[in-house]
Design a protein around this nucleic acid. Sequence first.
DNA 1: CTGCATCCCTGAAGATACTG
DNA 2: CAGTATCTTCAGGGATGCAG
Lengths: 118, 118
Amino acid sequence: MGTEQARVDALAYEIFHGVSGKWALPVLNLIGERTLRFGEVYAAAEGISHKMLTQTLRGLERDGVVARRVHPTVPPKVEYSLTEAGQALRGTLNQLCGWTRRYLEHIDAARAGFGSQG
Amino acid sequence: MGTEQARVDALAYEIFHGVSGKWALPVLNLIGERTLRFGEVYAAAEGISHKMLTQTLRGLERDGVVARRVHPTVPPKVEYSLTEAGQALRGTLNQLCGWTRRYLEHIDAARAGFGSQG
DNA sequence: CTGCATCCCTGAAGATACTG
DNA sequence: CAGTATCTTCAGGGATGCAG
């Protein structure tokens, strides 16, 4: 065995690498709150480009993290939401914020002393 | 308020971005098991280049995640280990492996059906 | 309103060689 | 054995224009 472990390991890195993009986390948190339309996410995630939002959404959708629902109306209307897996992923990812908050001073101290102390 | 939150938010992204590198996670898990010398990590993390190991280690050290201990011996000897914060970070990061394992089938299904189903 | 294609720039990561 | 510097390659990400 070890095959299964290797598979999970590799996939985990893929996911990790995938959501490490500049916009995955913000988008995940935005959609995580409630279902939003493309334009709404675009407006909420200030600074993101048109292309990157599409790209980010596509990647998350590909991994079953984001659910995409298209309304065949005259003005196209597409809604995005998180799947159950997506919500779980969001929770896991946001624990990093908790870690950061917890070790805030430690991190600052390390950075401040980096290169000065041995 | 909001200032503190923004600070944590930005820092969290920095950390997130930092450990999203190709070798941060493997190195973190390697050193997390026990203190290792540069060469030992280099050998254990097969595929990594000399430069990338140094760079990865430096980045983690900068954030107070990795502790670096230099032995002023004739053949240089440098040992790396995780700080308490590092162990905590390692734990948080590895939860992603748990998430991956849990939603393995879901992810596979999503990827398989991506582009085929509406 | 949404999505896709193209061009361009920057930064990550590999290979290699040199210093202590 | 450990660390740094240089060169190159390539994917991520921004801007813009076109299409359904």
